[in-house]
Design a protein around this nucleic acid. Structure first.
Lengths: 117, 117
DNA sequence: TTATGAACAGACTGTTCATCG
DNA sequence: CGATGAACAGTCTGTTCATAA
C-alpha cells in the first residue's frame, strides 16, 4: 500500500462507473472527465485514460469490442463492456478503491488540521 | 502540477511544523510521525523523512547543525533550524502546500461521491 | 479533427544496504 | 540499538510521437 491513492486506481474507478453507465469508449470518457474536472483544475491526461482501460482489460474486468460510431461517420471506436465475471470483480475493486480513497481523505484531513497556523 | 499532493511535499510540510515546535532531529520526527500515523495505517518511510529534510535545506528554508544529544550519550545528531529568511519562505511554502491539500481533498471527495453505488 | 496507442524520459518512492557510536 | 544517508530498483506519470479514418 502506497501513500495516497494513485491516479491510475482513481481513474480506473471512474472507468468502471462510466462503463456501467454505458459511456463506452475512451475518447468520450476523456472528454467527459475533462469537462467534469475542469473546475477543480485537474485535467486527466489522455495516456492515463487509455492505460486505465488497458489495465481493466488485463484485470479481466472489461473486454474490448470494435464498433463503428453510431452516427454516420466511418470512424471506428473501441467500446468496453464487462466480461462474464466483470461486474463482480468490478464491485470488489470499487470497494477496495473507495476504502483507499477514504484512507487518503483521512490523511489529507489530518495534514490540514495539523499544519494550519 | 501533478494529480494529488506528493508524499514529499506532505512530509516537508510536517517537517516545517515540527521544526517550528522545536522537535529538532530526523529520527525523533520519524518516530513521532510513526506513532502519530499508526492509527491511519500510514508509516512514513525513513528515507522520505531524510529526503524531505535535505530538500528543505536545498530550498534554503532550514540549515543543519550537529549537536551532541542532550542526555549523557555521545551520539551526535543533526538538528534543523530556520535560516535567516527561512520562516518567510516556509510560510509561503506552507500556504502553497495547504492549497494543494485542499485541491486533493476536493478531488477525493468528488471521487467518493461520483463512484459510490 | 476524432480516436487510439506506444515510447520516452523523468519524478517519486519503498526496500535495502552502509556507516558510525 | 539509535541515527543518518545513499543506492538501487521499480512504479507512476506527463509529454511527445505515431498512426489512422
Amino acid at each position: 500500500m502506497g501513500f495516497l491513492i494513485a491516479q491510475r486506481a482513481y481513474l480506473k474507478l471512474y472507468m468502471i462507473t462510466l462503463v456501467e453507465k454505458h459511456r463506452g469508449y475512451g475518447y468520450q470518457m476523456l472528454e467527459e472527465l475533462k469537462r467534469d474536472f475542469k473546475e477543480l483544475g485537474y485535467e486527466p491526461p489522455q495516456s492515463e485514460i487509455y492505460r486505465s482501460l488497458h489495465d481493466l482489460v488485463e484485470d479481466g474486468i472489461l473486454y474490448r469490442a470494435r464498433h463503428r460510431k453510431d452516427d454516420a461517420e466511418y470512424q471506428e471506436v473501441i467500446m468496453y463492456y464487462f466480461t462474464d465475471h466483470g461486474m463482480e470483480k468490478a464491485s470488489l475493486y470499487r470497494k477496495q478503491v473507495i476504502e483507499d480513497l477514504e484512507r487518503s481523505q483521512a490523511l489529507i484531513h489530518k495534514a490540514i488540521k495539523d499544519n494550519s497556523i
